[in-house]
């Protein structure tokens, strides 16, 4: 299963990005292969529609779960209709490494 995580940098030491649509990087983590893929977010500077464009990108990568700090109202509906699960982590300063560790438990 693939999981998308929003990140502030392109390494697993980076901290979770609390925004979804305009986060710096998306990390696609594969729970079976234990592989990570880093994708720079092309919508970081868009004026509107960043959330929906990012949601499309995530869906095209085949992710089944998305982890971020916050999701907008429009994005929630898009993910609900695509049957992609949302996970919200309110804690700040949580690194990508910590989150991946939770999956390996």
């Amino acid at each position: 299963m693939k999981v998308a995580i929003t990140s502030t940098g392109n390494s697993t030491d980076a901290v979770l990005d609390s925004r979804f649509g305009r986060c710096s990087w998306f990390i696609i983590y594969d729970t079976e292969l234990k592989s990570t893929e880093f994708i720079p977010n092309p919508n970081i500077d868009s004026i509107e529609g960043a959330g929906i464009a990012s949601a499309r990108l995530i869906a095209s990568k085949g992710a089944e779960k998305v982890i971020s700090g916050e999701f907008g109202a429009k994005v929630k509906g898009v993910f609900d209709s695509l049957n992609i699960k949302l996970i919200v982590i309110k804690e700040e300063n949580k690194t990508i490494k910590d989150i991946i560790k939770l999956f390996q438990k």
Partner: peptide, 21 residues
């Protein structure tokens, strides 16, 4: 012009919120 709200749950171990379709 609607969006459907799914059920939200909170995990007491890792402190995260997640939804269930």
């Amino acid at each position: 012009k609607v969006y459907f709200d799914s059920e939200w749950y909170q995990c007491n171990d890792c402190g995260s919120l997640f939804n269930h379709h």
